[in-house]
Each structure stands twice: as structure tokens, then as C-alpha cells.
Amino acid sequence: MAMKYSETVMEHFRNPRNVGEIPDADGIGEVGNPQCGDIMTFYIKVKDDKLDDVKFQTFGCGAAIAVSSMISEMAKGKPLDDAVAISNKAVAEALGGLPTNKMHCSNLGADALRAAIQSYRDKVAANLAEPPRVKVEPETDHDHEAEAVCHCPYCDLENPSDAPYCTSCGKPLDTH
């Protein structure tokens, strides 16, 4: 399946900004699972309620890496409330658009950043020395493997990873 990535996506893929870890991070957020093949971890430093530094680590495809890079660039220096409001649509737009079945990557990026900010807020609220790692994953009391969700490549809704068709738009998820 040919990958129709924009020039901007390819540029962020080839030269991602802000890759790395922050050892004394103020907030750490994680999203994704091995089933879907995208995992992102965001680290933030907060000063005067603004994002002083943002770094990320990403395991994933071209879109995942580009999204992480773009969102880190968009968020750096912003007040926390503005950063939390960065939507996946805004990221996709800034990247010059993403192929339909890669739109979920922009969700992951936005979620990861918000998780990192939540982690910071939790740390502050509970007066912790270190930020709790906030992981975005579905609530389940079954084993994680079985309940892993993936996004429908057509309408972007979350579905259990072994669903034969999307419960929202009805398109078969089984097709390759």
C-alpha cells in the first residue's frame, strides 16, 4: 500500500525535533500498545505553568514519529492550558495532512502530551518528588493483551483489536 506522506511529514520523520528523555522530568505520559504498533512516551519540564521543555521517545511508523515531532514543537513554550488544547486535527493540519488510516497517530500524540501534563498536575496535587507515569490505556480487568484497542482505519473510532468490523462505521477491520 503506497504511503502518501506529505513533504512536511517526511521532513519531521527524517529530522524529528526534540527526541530524547528528560531524566528529572516534571511529567511523563505514555500511550499506545504493541498490538497497534505505536508507542509514544512524552517527557515535560514545567516552569511558570509553561512547557519549558518537551522530549519524546516513539516506537512506530513514519506518521507516529512525525506527529510526535510536530506536537513537541507546537507545545514547547506554551502555557499548559494551551498545550492541553492542541487537537489531533491541529497536528494533522500542521503536518499538511495525514493519510486517513494514519489519523489515529495524531490522536496518540495529543493523548501522550496530555498524559504528560496530567502526570505533572498529579505530581503537584499530591506533592510528590517524582511525577507518576500516566499511561493512557483502556480500563479493563481482563488481561491487557486481550483487551488492546486499535483505531478503525476508516473513521478512527476505537475498537477491540479482534473486532471483525468497526462498531461505528461498520467497515470490516479484518481486511488487509
Binding site: 504511503m3 506522506y5 498490538q35 504498533g37 511508523c61 513514519g62 489515529h104 486499535c150 482505519p153 488487509h176
Partner: peptide, 27 residues
Amino acid sequence: ESVLLFLDMEGVQVASGSACISRSLKV
């Protein structure tokens, strides 16, 4: 997929069975 993109830049064309590559986003 990310490996394939970099390999393609070097002129090497291969395939992969990763989830991101497949239309159904399944490995």
C-alpha cells in the same frame, strides 16, 4: 514501516508485516 521509509531513501525496496503497513492496521 519507519525502516522501510529510510531504506527507500537509500534506494532499497522491501516489505514488512508490521501493523502500520497493513490496511487493517493489524500485525
